[in-house]
C-alpha cells in the first residue's frame, strides 16, 4: 500500500500541487455554478479541444526544461500541416490515397524536425539565447508560410481524414487518443530515457553536465528536434480538425503553451517539471473555458481567466513558501 502511494508520488512529483488544487477548484466552482457542467457534453468538448493546445504544449515543454523556449511552435505546426496538404494536393487532392497521406505525415514530421535541428544547432554551438533564436525562426517560418500560401487557405482533402479530426474509438475522440499517446511517450522519454535525464541536468547547469560527460550539444539539438517533430503532429491534427491549413491557425496558442507549462509547475529557469502535472494543467485550462462558455462567456474571457489563474497559482506558491519559513521559525 505504502509503496503504491510512493509510486504515485514519484509519478506526479511535488509539481502536482498547483494544478491539482486548480483542478479541484474548477470542478467544484463550475459543478455548483452550472448544472450542465458535469455532463458528457462538457467532457466531449474538452476532449476535442485539448489535443491541439496539448500537443503544442508538449512541444514547448522540452525546451522549457532545458531553460529555453521554442517560440516557433505554432508556425512550425502550420508549415508541417502545409507539407501534408501539398503532398495530398499534388497527388489527387480529394482523391489522394492513404499512402500519400502517410508520406505527407512523414515529410511533415521531417520538416518540423528540420526547423528544430537548425535552432538546436545554433543554440548549442553559438550559445545564443533560445528566445532569440526561436523568435527569429518563428519570424522566418511564418514568413515562409505566408510566402508560399500568399496568406490564403489550403483545403480540399480526402474524406478519410475526417475521422482523424472528429472520429471516436470506443467513445474516445481520436485526437485525444493521439495526444494521450504523445503524453505517455514524453513521460517515458523524460523519466526513463537518458535523453530525458540529461535534459533535466542541462536545464539546471549545462557546464556541470558537460563536466560529468553529458554530450550537451547533442542533447540540445535533440530536444529542439523532438520539439519540432511534436509541432508537426499538432499541425497534422489541426489540418484534420479544420479540414484546411492556414498560416496563423493556432497562433494564439503560443503564449498559452508557456502558461500551461508554468501552471503545471515547470520551473521557468529549467531543470524541473513533469509531464503529468502539465497534462492536468491543460485539462484545467480547457475545463475553465468550457465552464465559462456554459455560463455565457466567450473564449476571450477564458483567456483572461487563464492569466489570472496563473498569477493565483504563483501567489499561492509564494504564500506556501512564506508559511514554511514562518513555521520553521516558530518550531
Amino acid at each position: 500500500m505504502n509503496s503504491v502511494a510512493t509510486r504515485i508520488k514519484d509519478l506526479l512529483g511535488p509539481e502536482i500541487a498547483g494544478p491539482g488544487f486548480a483542478f479541484l477548484a474548477v470542478m467544484l466552482f463550475f459543478g455548483f455554478a452550472s448544472p450542465q457542467f458535469l455532463s458528457e457534453a462538457t467532457f466531449g468538448s474538452v476532449a476535442f479541444q485539448l489535443p491541439e493546445l496539448g500537443l503544442l504544449t508538449l512541444a514547448m515543454l522540452l525546451p522549457v526544461l532545458t531553460g529555453g523556449l521554442n517560440l516557433a511552435i505554432t508556425f512550425t505546426a502550420n508549415i508541417a500541416g502545409l507539407t501534408v496538404a501539398w503532398v495530398l494536393q499534388a497527388n489527387g487532392g480529394v482523391d489522394a490515397g492513404i499512402a500519400w497521406f502517410a508520406l505527407g505525415c512523414v515529410l511533415a514530421v521531417a520538416v518540423g524536425a528540420a526547423t528544430g535541428v537548425v535552432m538546436g544547432l545554433v543554440i548549442a554551438y553559438t550559445r545564443a539565447h533560445p528566445i532569440l533564436v526561436s523568435l527569429s525562426m518563428m519570424i522566418f517560418v511564418r514568413g515562409l508560410g505566408e510566402f508560399l500560401t500568399r496568406g490564403g487557405d489550403v483545403s480540399g482533402f480526402p474524406a478519410f481524414l475526417q475521422p482523424i479530426g472528429h472520429g471516436s474509438i470506443l467513445g474516445f475522440p481520436i485526437p485525444l487518443l493521439i495526444f494521450i499517446a504523445c503524453v505517455l511517450l514524453w513521460h517515458v522519454l523524460l523519466t526513463r530515457m537518458k535523453l530525458g535525464f540529461n535534459t533535466y541536468m542541462i536545464g539546471s547547469n549545462i557546464e556541470a553536465a558537460r563536466y560529468s560527460g553529458v554530450n550537451t550539444r547533442k542533447v540540445i539539438v535533440l530536444v529542439y528536434t523532438l520539439s519540432g517533430a511534436m509541432c508537426a503532429v499538432a499541425g497534422i491534427i489541426m489540418l484534420a480538425r479544420f479540414n484546411s491549413v492556414r498560416v496563423g491557425h493556432g497562433e494564439s496558442y503560443l503564449l498559452i503553451t508557456v502558461l500551461a507549462c508554468f501552471l503545471g509547475g515547470v520551473n521557468p529557469f529549467g531543470g524541473f517539471g513533469r509531464v503529468i502535472p502539465v497534462f492536468v494543467a491543460l485539462v484545467v485550462l480547457q475545463l475553465l473555458s468550457s465552464g465559462l462558455n456554459l455560463m455565457g462567456a466567450n473564449q476571450h474571457l477564458a483567456t483572461a481567466v487563464w492569466g489570472i489563474l496563473l498569477i493565483a497559482v504563483m501567489i499561492l506558491r509564494w504564500l506556501a513558501a512564506q508559511l514554511m519559513i514562518l513555521n520553521r521559525r516558530k518550531g
Binding site: 517515458v188 530515457m193 537518458k194 535525464f197 533535466y200 541536468m201 556541470a208 563536466y211 560527460g213 553529458v214
Partner: peptide
C-alpha cells in the same frame, strides 16, 4: 558550479556519469 548540479537530487548527481549501468530493458530503472 562544475562538480555537481546543485539544485538536482543526490541520486541524479550520483548516477549522471553512469546511466548505462542503471538501464534495464533499454530504459532507465
Amino acid at each position: 558550479s562544475l562538480g555537481l548540479i546543485q539544485p538536482q537530487s543526490i541520486a541524479d548527481n550520483l548516477a549522471i556519469a553512469s546511466l548505462d549501468r542503471i538501464k534495464s530493458g533499454g530504459l532507465l530503472s
